[in-house]
């Protein structure tokens, strides 16, 4: 197996995730797309681990999974809060940062 098989797959998933983050309006969908990006990173880490015969990548992947769980928890809590205040989770209606 080529290491590039995994890396290319990671790249494809990453770009799909990026597209999702950019194109989706629903906040929950954006969070899902972020999960795609994080998973692509994990694939890369583990592929490199296998290539180099080390274990550190496994540890990093575990850390990423844990942080992703935390991120989803806080992210969804925020989405709930926004929903409660505005009755909508459409991100393009949130434009308080407009200059």
């Amino acid at each position: 197996m080529l290491v590039n098989q995994f890396l290319m797959l990671g790249a494809v998933l990453f770009c799909i995730g990026v597209y999702g983050v950019l194109a989706r309006k629903n906040a929950v969908m954006v969070l899902m797309s972020i999960e795609l990006i994080l998973n692509s990173v994990n694939i890369n880490l583990l592929a490199f681990d296998r290539l180099n015969g080390s274990i550190d990548g496994n540890v990093f992947a575990l850390f990423i999974i844990a942080v992703a769980a935390a991120e989803v928890g806080v992210g969804l809590a925020m989405v709930l809060l926004i929903y409660r205040n505005r009755k909508s989770i459409a991100l393009d209606e949130l434009s308080e940062m407009k200059g």
Partner: peptide, 23 residues
């Protein structure tokens, strides 16, 4: 019907550009 936002088209070139570079 409207899960995508109005500027969703921007995402495609950006993603393809990124993919091209990475590949």
């Amino acid at each position: 019907g409207d899960l995508n936002n109005k500027n969703w088209g921007v995402g495609i070139p950006v993603a393809i550009l990124l993919l091209g570079v990475m590949v």
